[in-house]
Computed example of a mutant assay.
Amino acid sequence: MKTPGDPRLDPSLSAIMSERRQLINLAYRLLGSLADAEDVVQEAYTRWYALSRQQQEAIASPGAWLMKVAGRICLDVLGSARARRESYVGEWIPEPLPDHREWSEGRADPADRVTLDESVTMAFLVVLESMTPAERVAFVLHDVFRYPFAEVAEIVGRSPAACRQLASSARRRISASQAPAASVASRADIVREFKKAWEAKDIPALIGLLDPDATGIADGGGLVNAAPHPIVGAEQLARYLVTISGVFPGRTILERTVNGQPGLVIQQDGVTSAVIALGIADGRITHFWAVRNPEKLRPW
């Protein structure tokens, strides 16, 4: 017997809803924001349901149709994002994601979770931010989601050859920025030592763990205090970290997985006030990304 909500009442329903996670994964990688990714997916489904039943039945692969629509929406969002970023207060950092086991209560739907792999590390997302919208979409669709260039071309609105060049240009950017691969265990050891040195306010130890040209960036979104500009240099960054540690007494620094990599979470009275992702190369910390904007800390 069929009951209300039973997918058998609408055979296409379960098929298109099963695509939700794939759509979220695509949109997050393209936009660097889970909130924006959710909006894109909602809009893609809205467009699907705006079709007549006859139009829906004429679509051979609803999943492919939804991915194409979501890709185009993301391209439009990326085009307007640059203007929005110009009015953003302070530095902008992609929204950090927790390990699935630490997803906050009320945000535990598997369909809303992003697969954590090398294409969502903070370092990777930051490089994606430096690309043009077309480069980013062509690269992510082809190199991450394995879409053929003929299909990428339909989404980007350029020829397959042009999309191939866009992806190649993006690939060179990624290669130029990639640090030598390090094991998760070795990264975790460095993060642990960094945490200890920070808690002890040990400036020499912090400097020893930081690359001489280490860069610290904080994102408060104008909603909380954060460094308005990047802090460059191991000593400058170490001294800044020790200074701000005195401003927030009673805080707790926790080792957590951030975008699939060892990172840190700062809590004040049990509430997450910052999520920190770290770029590591040759045994030293090269980048310190601190997200303090509360709107980007919802999953935490």
Score class of each variant (00 low, 15 high):
153 A>N: 02
224 V>C: 05
160 P>L: 02
187 R>T: 02
167 A>P: 07
221 G>R: 05
166 L>Y: 15
197 A>S: 06
211 D>Q: 03
214 A>E: 03
195 K>V: 11
194 F>G: 00
179 A>C: 11
186 S>A: 06
205 A>C: 09
206 L>W: 03
146 R>Q: 12
163 C>A: 05
205 A>G: 07
169 S>M: 12
179 A>I: 02
191 V>Y: 03
176 A>C: 00
170 A>P: 06
216 G>P: 06
210 L>V: 02
189 D>V: 08
180 P>N: 05
213 D>A: 14
176 A>M: 04
188 A>C: 01
162 A>S: 14
207 I>D: 03
206 L>T: 00
194 F>V: 02
186 S>N: 08
210 L>R: 02
157 G>R: 07
170 A>S: 09
209 L>V: 10
204 P>W: 09
181 A>V: 03
172 R>K: 13
184 V>G: 08
164 R>W: 13
168 S>Q: 14
223 L>R: 15
147 Y>A: 10
194 F>Q: 01
207 I>L: 04
181 A>E: 13
203 I>E: 02
161 A>D: 15
199 E>R: 13
171 R>A: 15
204 P>M: 05
196 K>C: 11
172 R>N: 08
219 D>G: 05
222 G>R: 01
205 A>D: 10
165 Q>T: 10
206 L>H: 00
199 E>W: 10
168 S>E: 14
158 R>V: 10
173 R>M: 15
221 G>H: 07
172 R>P: 06
214 A>R: 00
180 P>L: 04
163 C>P: 06
189 D>T: 11
214 A>F: 05
223 L>A: 13
167 A>Y: 02
182 A>D: 09
215 T>H: 09
195 K>G: 08
202 D>N: 13
153 A>T: 04
160 P>H: 00
148 P>F: 02
195 K>E: 11
203 I>F: 03
185 A>E: 15
153 A>R: 04
163 C>E: 02
168 S>F: 13
187 R>K: 14
189 D>K: 10
216 G>H: 06
220 G>H: 08
202 D>S: 06
184 V>N: 09
158 R>D: 10
164 R>T: 07
184 V>R: 15
197 A>V: 07
176 A>Q: 08
198 W>S: 13
203 I>G: 00
